[in-house]
């Protein structure tokens, strides 16, 4: 059975479909503190490992153990690593073990940071903002626009496995400068959108109207003459500063803002706009 050292099995379309299906619907189910996506990585390629090395062989057990080790990357890019990995294993078999283990450890960090910034922060921020903006007017269409965008992302996730398998490690170098340009462009849109959101989505105003002589001074109206939406801009600037303080987490900041807002509202300084 296991007469030859280098495997003879070639991956076909069904294999790629199976890996993609398992990746898209199962990759992170086993996420745990000890080895994070380790078992997920094995699960994704288990049928292909069995075909490459053959059931019951010591090589298979060796590689199964290799693939349950610590692994954590962006679940939007994981099949790029899988594709490169399988191209190596299919050609070299067990001799490629060190290459594969090193490649996985070397690539997972950089793909994690690019993937998180584009797919876990920027796209949800941009489409989430549009969806939320429409939702405040009672319109659910924005949510469905976002779902369509995510389906496009799924297509991207589906296609990258094949590209990575064909191009191998070379892909990483050719991809890197395009990804850098893309990340830069996406952050521009992100920053622009935050500016737009500050101007529309924070509906508070000054409620304080001190009497000057016998005439009440409408502070909000005076401010509007200088710059509309000045108060929201100041609030965001203040929280931005707060978040930069030591020992500050987003959850703490949320509670501080909650309490301060209740107090200022109770004192009659600010009100919901």
């Amino acid at each position: 059975m296991m007469n030859s050292k280098t495997p003879t099995y070639k991956l076909n379309d069904d294999d790629f479909r199976q890996i993609n299906r398992r990746s898209l619907f199962g990759f992170q189910l086993g996420w745990n503190y000890e080895r994070m996506q380790g078992s997920g990585y094995l699960y994704t390629i288990l049928p292909q490992l069995r075909k490459i090395y053959g059931d019951g062989t010591p090589e298979l057990k060796e590689m199964m153990k290799t693939h349950t080790q610590f692994f954590n990357t962006s679940n939007f890019f994981n099949t790029i690593i899988t594709g490169i990995d399988l191209a190596v294993e299919e050609k070299e078999g067990i001799k490629g073990e060190e290459t594969v283990a090193g490649m996985k450890a070397g690539l997972m960090g950089s793909f994690a940071s690019i993937g998180d910034s584009i797919f876990a922060a920027l796209i949800p921020a941009i489409f989430g903002a549009i969806a939320a903006n429409m939702a405040t007017k009672g319109n659910p269409i924005g949510v469905f626009i976002w779902i369509l965008a995510q389906i496009a992302v799924m297509v991207f996730r589906w296609k990258q496995l094949r590209v990575a398998y064909n191009e191998g490690v070379a892909l990483v170098t050719t991809m890197s400068h395009r990804l850098a340009a893309l990340t830069n462009a996406a952050t521009i849109m992100g920053v622009f959108m935050v500016g737009a959101l500050v101007a529309t989505m924070i509906n508070v105003k000054f409620a304080w109207a001190p009497n000057v002589g016998s005439v009440p001074l409408d502070i909000q109206n005076s401010l509007d003459m200088i710059l509309p939406k000045l108060l929201p801009a100041l609030i965001v600037a203040g929280i931005y500063w707060l978040l930069g303080r030591k020992h500050m987490t987003s959850t703490r900041a949320i509670f501080i803002v909650l309490i301060v807002s209740v107090v200022l509202s109770a004192l009659g300084l600010i009100a919901k706009g």
Partner: peptide
């Protein structure tokens, strides 16, 4: 009022 201010935290984090 706090509910109206809270989105500001999300923007600042971003």
């Amino acid at each position: 009022t706090a509910g109206a201010v809270l989105p500001a935290v999300g923007f600042a984090i971003l």
